[in-house]
Design a binder for these strands. Structure first.
Lengths: 235, 235
DNA sequence: GGAAAAGCTGACTGTTCGGTCAAGAACTGA
DNA sequence: TCAGTTCTTGACCGAACAGTCAGCTTTTCC
């Protein structure tokens, strides 16, 4: 109950405050370890001891920075949600549908490749009722989808892409791209691969893109996809 | 350690044996309750007490039929896996791609509608490493996918559908259709619906089908989809 | 250099949960 | 009817776990 206790999850957001170097570093280490453990074991299956071990810190230290397991979990989720919304910015009324869709699919596939744990934590949360993200879904995400569905409807009305139910179309993109992170085990086993390389992802991305563009009634790109290694990460 | 203890999960499979009526009924009740609780809470988050309460039986009774929580979980998974493979039977070399794909997508969407808990339990298992289904994935499912990919490749080679990577195409169908069970919370919140009715599912199925057929370069169906209520369930 | 603040942590606690057990009730078949 | 089998269940146990805390060290800032 020391005064320091008051500085917890919420402060993670505040990257401008002059919080100590030590605090910042440790919070980051803990969040990184927690994201991984929560992804692998789910909220209930994860233990503070596991997370502590992965972070290389004693368990009591976690409780110093994050009062409770719940608080730590919410901090991990916050981190993930903030990242979730960004890449769809490419959807604007004036944008070329092909270009916007291509950029979006590539960004989502890159997210699945580079931050699979984040995707899994989110999937796990939704799967088990999403109580922790109810507000996010019903407000932030809904607003975004409403807006972007409007953009897509505009594209359709202008004859720039085939008629689709904009919301279902977005669901399809999410489902397919996130599948490569969330169901990686299944994909690897079915393909008989031990792991999915960057090359694998490049090929899968190209194929997903092809199918998505076809579903939108758009011509397939001539240029092959070259994945970059630069994906902004706030973790 | 009574002799009866030996009759556990494995017997669930054997529906022909003249096992007692009471046993059969209770095993079924427990499996049904367990599927639901495991779906809602995951393996670690589910408690035997929760399952017992949902089944309307004392906890010790569960341990009489299923020795351990692990054993019960495996029985639930077994039940689900058996169901997983069936609907893709419509993929045969001589079948019409449009008809086969339509039947498959409808079957998968119906599974998501009528057995969402099963889908969630499976998703949860894969999400957390799939240790319990490793053999299923690497053997049964891989064989099936290899075979059906061959069928699809044949369709493509015969010019009966657009060129696709058969395996990625199957992943897409799985991802999209299962998404409606696994991510139902997200879908409901984004659409602003309290629940998804049969009519909602009919509309979503039609849209998914349209996108899948387009992705396969096939003409869209003239006839609207009319969902049936008859989905075989072995639970 | 020194005092206050921030950070650290081993040892501990209360609770929850999977699993056990022994004694009895209900069912079965001859 | 009766013996054997199957089924039932409250009470209990040990392990695992989240969370606490008091006393300590390190850092910060004047």
């Amino acid at each position: 109950m020391a005064k320091a206790m008051a500085r917890t999850a919420a402060d993670t957001t505040d990257t401008t405050s002059p919080q100590g170097r030590i605090r910042r570093e440790n919070v980051e280490r803990i969040l990184k370890a927690a994201e991984r453990v929560f992804a692998e074991a789910g909220f209930a299956g994860a233990t503070m001891a596991d997370i502590a071990e992965r972070a290389g810190l004693p368990k009591a230290n976690l409780h110093y920075y994050f009062g409770t397991k719940d608080e730590l979990y919410r901090a991990v989720l916050d981190n993930i949600l903030r990242m979730w919304l960004a890449p769809i910015d490419s959807f604007t009324p004036d944008a070329d549908p092909s270009v916007a869709l291509t950029a979006y699919v590539i960004a989502k596939m890159e997210a699945s490749r580079t931050r699979p744990h984040a995707s899994k934590v989110f999937a796990n949360e939704i799967l088990h009722g999403g109580n922790q993200v109810e507000r996010f879904l019903a407000e932030d995400l809904k607003s975004l989808v409403d807006a972007k569905a409007g953009v897509i409807d505009g594209w359709v009305a202008a004859g720039r892409m085939a008629p689709v139910d904009a919301r279902q179309f977005l669901f399809m993109i999410w489902a397919v791209t996130q599948h490569y992170a969330d169901f990686d085990v299944q994909i690897r086993k079915v393909l008989g691969r031990r792991s999915l390389t960057r090359q694998d992802f490049a090929a899968m991305t190209a194929e997903v893109l092809r199918m998505v563009l076809r579903a939108a009634g758009l011509p397939e790109p001539e240029i092959p996809i070259t994945p970059t290694d630069s994906v902004p990460s706030n973790l």
